[in-house]
């Protein structure tokens, strides 16, 4: 029943991951990484892991991204790859 959403989101997750890695700006990486976390959260919600989804929502969306932005803020946005 849920496999269709699951598959779609999984593909989405992989696209997000690739994008986060190949984008040539660290802030963009941080932002895309946030999107990746959203997708992961959804994926886990679909798979019935509510607690994990909750954690991922709070961590990935709330804290990780902010940390990333903070770190980029204190370092640089430049990246060669």
């Amino acid at each position: 029943m849920y496999w269709s959403i699951n598959l779609v989101i999984l593909v989405f997750v992989i696209v997000c991951a690739l994008a986060a890695i190949y984008v040539k700006d660290l802030l963009a990486t941080a932002v895309l990484f946030g999107a990746y976390s959203f997708m992961m959260c959804l994926l886990w919600a679909i798979m019935g892991a509510v607690d994990v989804a909750f954690t991922e929502a709070s961590v990935g969306a709330g804290v990780s991204t902010v940390f990333f932005v903070a770190a980029v803020f204190r370092t640089s946005r430049r990246t060669k790859d």
């Binding site: 986060a20 370092t75 060669k80 790859d81």
Partner: peptide
Amino acid sequence: AKNNLMKKLVGMNI
């Protein structure tokens, strides 16, 4: 393979 430390971190998280 990535050269940038922050990128590596993202990779680590993935």
